[in-house]
Amino acid sequence: MPQRIDGSGETIRFTFEGREIAARAGETLAAALIAAGETTTRASVVSGAPRGPYCMMGVCFECLVEIDGVPNRQACMIVAEPGMSVNRQKADEVAA
């Protein structure tokens, strides 16, 4: 499991697949998800295979999630905000 080296301080709460996740102010969704042990963020639109954050800098588009009903958002580029409802990007929701 991942650990935080500098204690607690997670003041933001959002949900991922219904599970409550704690994040620090100013932290990206992807970082908070990884800290919480959630490494799978989407299903490939081609095969449905699971994918997760890879580059953490907005380049790879593997960390796409659905935020408050809006799909295809980059979890590594979006700062966590209280009350966000985040879900995995499901393949059948975007692919034909």
Binding site: P2, R4, A31, A35, P50, P53, E62
Partner: peptide, 24 residues
Amino acid sequence: WTLPGVTTVGAVQILFKTSGIVFE
């Protein structure tokens, strides 16, 4: 290399810099 849990080394550093996250 597409499996969740596989990242770049840069990503590991970014997680450390932004969130103090490390993996044992």
